[in-house]
Design a protein around this nucleic acid. Structure first.
Lengths: 135, 135
DNA sequence: GGTACTGTATTAGTGGCCTAGTACAGTGAG
DNA sequence: CTCACTGTACTAGGCCACTAATACAGTACC
């Protein structure tokens, strides 16, 4: 699990860590029960304070996608996220609406919106399948 | 064009204004050449400093969705956005990927992702059509 | 039990985002 | 030309997000 940080991007470091780990999980590169690098180890790799990594892990734990065990380490949780189906759909809806509103304002039409969606979805699905058979 | 601000939401006021105007345009509630409320007028309505509204309008102008004329006012621009098709698709792809990564981490499956997408897309499309015939 | 690893807590400082006050400048109608 | 409206520039301050230093606490394994 390689993580690349761009300190000059304006996006907070801990958020970059969060989103890359989330992407790794969604793509199937990180599977349930896989260990994440320790707070210190990743901190050294990224030349960052351990607390910054801990902050990222805290967010991820709060969202239920990882769990921690003192002394042992941090791991990807299998199907965490304690939310009702409706809540999940609402969260997803809002993110998709944000994307589509942006797309429409960019002048893209219905066909292009659909195409883009399918392309991204396929990328995720096929990545997950590839990782699943690889292990 | 009613705009509702929640000062305690944590989201900066100017961003709330930006996203609501973007949504209004995408939904077809605001059509090209429609005037936006003046900086001062909207500032009074929202009990906010005129500069805060101006900050929002600055962002929107930078993105090309509105244009301003000194002394005259601010208007919705018809199909602004000077970007190549590829750039637009890239912006959209990143937003959709973000949404889908979130969806997958929430434990939603491919069918649910598709359903949610279609529902949101239909909402936008039908809203635009309704507004178009209404005017 | 000690050693070396995990994550955690506390504190603090810097930077910059966000908002506001206030004064300036352009435009259009009468 | 003047008035009343537009948006703009400049300044400044408060608040908090973000990161870091450093010390503490739990776990595993020899």
């Amino acid at each position: 699990m390689y993580i690349a940080i761009d300190p000059s991007s304006g996006v907070p470091i801990y958020m970059q860590i969060v989103s890359q780990i989330k992407t790794g999980i969604a793509m199937g590169r990180l599977l349930p029960e896989d260990p994440l690098p320790s707070v210190r180890q990743l901190a050294v790799e990224l030349s960052v304070n351990p607390n910054t990594v801990a902050r990222a892990y805290l967010d991820l734990e709060y969202e239920g996608v990882i769990y921690k065990r003192q002394g042992a380490g941090t791991f990807v949780s299998g199907q965490g996220v304690e939310m009702s189906k409706n809540e999940r759909r609402k969260v997803l809806s809002e993110l998709i609406e944000k994307a589509l509103v942006e797309g429409v304002n960019l002048g893209l039409d219905e066909v292009e919106l659909r195409e883009t969606f399918e392309r991204v979805l396929d990328k995720i699905i096929s990545s997950r399948q590839a990782e699943a058979v690889g292990k």
